[in-house]
Nucleic acid binder design. Sequence first.
DNA 1: GTAGACCTTCCCATTATGGGAAGGTCAAGG
DNA 2: CCTTGACCTTCCCATAATGGGAAGGTCTAC
Lengths: 130, 130
Amino acid sequence: MNIGAAARASGVSAKMIRHYESIGLLRTGARTLAGYRQYDDRDVHLLRFIRRARDLGFPLERIRDLLTLWDDPDRASADVKQLAEAHIADLDARIAALADMRDTLVALARACRGDQRPDCPILRKLAETD
Amino acid sequence: MNIGAAARASGVSAKMIRHYESIGLLRTGARTLAGYRQYDDRDVHLLRFIRRARDLGFPLERIRDLLTLWDDPDRASADVKQLAEAHIADLDARIAALADMRDTLVALARACRGDQRPDCPILRKLAETD
DNA sequence: GTAGACCTTCCCATTATGGGAAGGTCAAGG
DNA sequence: CCTTGACCTTCCCATAATGGGAAGGTCTAC
């Protein structure tokens, strides 16, 4: 299977497959005589794993850890859970930060008449001298 | 006022002040004979405006628009409100995306025993063949 | 006059992803 | 056999916002 077929099968772009290889997330695999990368079903399986972890927001460095655990038949599920919970905490922090921005902005927008006049609490707040 | 003093007064790092100047968000201002950038209270006011907008998550390109409106005594508050609401929609989308990840991950983590055994629904889900 | 705090510009790194150029390969069809 | 189109290769660049750090000039207080 060439890289394009692996990309279609896994949902990971060819660009990203090469990138993952370059940062050592994927092993440097077989090549044809012409230098074309070759992939098999296990590679596609691995790429799907990475894609799903990305879909859950795991950064590539965490995915590296997840892959190590996935590969290890003697892993403790506690280790996997710990990675997941650390990531949940990270997501929670980011959600909270965005929600704070959102709430502030919603309050300001609600107070803004939104008409033809220039007076606007949003700009007033941003320009506040405090 | 040198850049360091303006940075302290505005809460924007000297690095960022230079950057904002380089992308044209700030005018290229006065310099001393030695080439030191000089700032006054209006500059600090402007920098604070930018910082507050950044604190609300506005990207610099939106802040550029906000500054234009701020500068315009004939602006319509509707234009400001529209920028704010577009940004709220953006924040909402990001929050929703993160919350989806979070919820999925929380459900998986809850189902994981987190003990010494290798079996783990989190990894199983990521590895799913579907 | 020198030390220490500041300033300047320039380059590099981050995170994950894509665009695009220049050039080689391969399969199908005339 | 040769061409065409789809595919592959590597390499460089860009994104958004921020910071680190080097090499070198400036200023102030002692």
